[in-house]
């Protein structure tokens, strides 16, 4: 299985967490809250588009609202592939971080 990049991982996880409410504005907001990264919509949609192309997410047109200038939302949901990719990523994290509780600068090793 192909490894996810960090940005993909964050994005997929955010979509998963948001469940049914995963469209542009909340996604962007949540990412900002979690990681402090403030994506521009241009960048965000570029990434989402790539996730779509790779088959990690599926798109669904949502309802238009007046404050959106009458434009409909696009909701994102994880596909099976997306879930599996995330699971794999989680497993990988678990393995490589196993037994690490704290990271300090080891003066002995760097001497």
């Amino acid at each position: 299985m192909k490894e996810l990049t960090k940005a993909e991982e964050i994005l997929l996880l955010t979509i998963w967490r948001l469940k049914k409410d995963a469209y542009g504005v909340p996604i962007k907001q949540r990412i900002k809250d979690l990681t402090g990264k403030d994506y521009a919509y241009g960048t965000l949609y570029g990434l989402l588009e790539q996730l779509d192309k790779k088959g990690y997410v599926t798109k669904k047109a949502g309802e238009p609202t007046p404050e959106r200038g009458g434009r409909s939302k696009t909701y994102y949901r994880l596909s099976i592939t997306g879930i599996e990719a995330l699971k794999y990523s989680m497993e990988l994290h678990r393995v490589i971080w196993d037994g690490v509780s704290d990271i300090t600068f080891d003066e002995e090793a760097n001497r």
Partner: peptide, 14 residues
């Protein structure tokens, strides 16, 4: 080349 409607919508919303 992507569909700009949802993006513009999001931008407008925020």
């Amino acid at each position: 080349p992507i569909n700009t409607t949802p993006m513009l919508g999001d931008t407008a919303e925020e």
